[in-house]
Computed example of a mutant assay.
Amino acid sequence: MRIWRRAAAWSGALAAALALVVVVSAGIGPVRIPPTEVVKAVLNALVVPAGVEFGTGGASGTGVLSGSGSLTIPRPTFVYRSPFSYPIADVHQRIVLRVRLPRILLAALVGFALAAAGTVMQGFFRNPMADPSIIGVSSGAAVGAVAFIVFPFALSTTVTLPLLGAVDLGLSHGAGVSLFAFVGALLAAFGVYAIATRHGRTPVATLLLAGVAVQTFLGAVISYLQLQAGESLRRIVAWLMGHLSGATWTEVGVTALVVPPLFVLLLAYARDLNVLLLGEEEAHGLGVDVERTKRLLLAASALITAAGVAFAGVIGFVGLIVPHMLRLVVGPDHRVLLPTAALSGGAFLVAADTVARYGTTELPVGVVTAAVGAPFFIYLLMKREVHEL
């Protein structure tokens, strides 16, 4: 219980820090908004059920009785109201809720996902230099996204469903890029796993080498696609550098549906990941189903990383620097390290994106994370703070 209390204490403190970073970030931009106004805007947007109203009208509200005409049936409608009504400028409310908050929350979720996956990869490979891209997830996502940008095709169709009638299943260009990036990431990760697996066993060293080989091959594919890009090259470069501009509440919702459940799954295997640090033979002797645990950790890490990069593009150093930094602070126990690193990753990416969009020219967020992460990592190397796990 002591370790879980320690994890809860650290996680609570870092969750509060993340909330503070979100509030401060939402107030920074061409239009400055005080933090108190940001909080009021968010509270005003919250709604709770306030009751049910019954109305009539429409086809669903009318029934027909044989021989006696029609019978009007009241149709229930749920009513929602905000318990808060703080006075705030309408323009501030729209800027916070429609422009800044979706982008900030998407940054928090993506940073959370990348840092969580990086923590697992560093423990899985027992290597502080490991990050989510080591199993080809980022390269696969890049190939899928770039391929769709270079060779776009119609993803729209109309199907007729019972009761609903004609339904348009079309996807916008942005949604198509995200979908192909997600699929490409999963195909690359599971392809690396298939290459490295023999007779039901997946040696970690073989998995690492397979990941390097697949990343190299996919890098060549990306280079070829860039040569064929023509006028689309600028869009490709922007995606490869990482971006969060134009984030929507739909993207936030989709990411929020995927990331938290996968994180809970990773957290459930934190103890087994601790045991794997001792070596596979020792872990097997202590009752851990090594191969099953490795499969679950790899699959969950690949999925949570794919969910992050699908909408945000390739963002480096979050999954490398943040877990390593938190390991120096809270120690190597993944029951504490995993939640603290994930929350810190969310705060780090929100802060980096705030820097990226601050000023007259917006920078790709991947440029900021690399500019901050690389010197910090060099500093750790010079201070000899890169330890064995």
Rank of each mutant, 00 (worst) to 15 (best):
R100G: 07
M382D: 12
L296H: 08
A16K: 02
D353M: 07
V367M: 01
E291Q: 13
P74I: 03
A154M: 08
L227Q: 13
G191F: 07
V79T: 05
L171Y: 03
T305M: 08
L343G: 02
L105N: 11
Q93Y: 15
A283Y: 03
G174P: 05
G144S: 08
G69H: 05
T293N: 01
Q122E: 10
E231K: 09
I321E: 00
L286S: 04
W10D: 03
S82I: 01
F376R: 06
Q226T: 12
V39P: 00
G308N: 03
W249Y: 06
G140D: 10
V183I: 15
H334Q: 14
N274V: 10
G170R: 04
F190H: 10
G27I: 09
L363N: 04
E231H: 09
F124R: 00
L218N: 03
V330E: 04
G176C: 08
V64W: 10
S344N: 02
T354W: 06
A341D: 03
I149F: 02
I236V: 15
A115T: 05
R201I: 12
V192M: 10
V322L: 02
V177S: 05
L380A: 09
I321H: 00
Q122C: 07
L389Y: 12
I33S: 03
T216D: 01
F317A: 05
L265N: 09
L381N: 10
A194Y: 08
W239N: 03
P364G: 04
V212R: 10
V290M: 01
E53K: 04
V290S: 00
T248G: 02
R5S: 14
F148Y: 14
G184A: 11
L233N: 01
F153L: 14
I95S: 01
A141F: 07
A166S: 14
S25H: 07
F125H: 03
P83F: 02
F125M: 11
A107W: 04
E280I: 06
V183G: 10
